[in-house]
Amino acid sequence: MKVNRYPRHHHMPLYETTPSHYLVSIAIATGLAIGLTALLVHFVYPHNAFDVNRISLGVIVQGALNTLARMVLAFILSVAVAVPLALFIGSTPRIQTIFLPIADILQSVPVLAFFPVVAVFFVANNAFELAAVFVICVSMVWNIVFPVIGGLQTIPDDIKSAAFVFRVRGWRRFWFITLPSLFPFLVTGSLLAWAQGWTIVIVAEVLHAYIPKGNPSQDLLGLGSLLVDSNAQVKNGVFLASLTAMILVVTLMNFAVWQPLLRLSQRFRFD
């Protein structure tokens, strides 16, 4: 007897959502939540001063969470900027010819070169957190832009033709075809962006180094500032603890986030 493979209660998963849609939705929701919280915190508490001579494990954990929150917010913002920018630059060969060299030059400018100017501006407006988030974001953006532009070139012509023939056009084409096609490149670019971000966050949180007549009380509590300030004051215990915390966070992220995403992204690659 042939079993009906499609009983009435069978929820046939239709086209509406794919893993990339869930990921994007979760990422945006998380980013918004974290961002709003961070903004609220930094307006209520303009900066989170700390004394490197009195650091407990709890402070290091707090610092790790603060750094992670800044990185996540910066990442969300960088994706929000990088993806539309990449889609624009990669949209036609003519636009690519004009804007790709410009993007190439811009990404070569070291972000820390203009960070002092940025820092002064944000600090003057009482936006300490935003100063750090901004510079981390700028450092991340280009690592996403160029892989996404490359990813646009890999969408096969037959896929674009099939999308047209089957009436997957306009925003539907972007949502159901383009975005999933770009997912592997977004993952690769994000990995590179976070690697760059970890490098920059170490200096981005040490605001006093970029403010005229600045002092360490203006630094943002985070793994970066703990590393720099503890090293400056020869607090080796704090330094080692902060370094260990950073390594732990990076390693955990690798296992919990990047490896699963890299495995998932294989499904989205065209043969």
Partner: peptide, 9 residues
């Protein structure tokens, strides 16, 4: 299509 044009995901 000659290349099948299926969505791999």
């Amino acid at each position: 299509f000659q290349s099948f044009a299926l969505l791999p995901w």
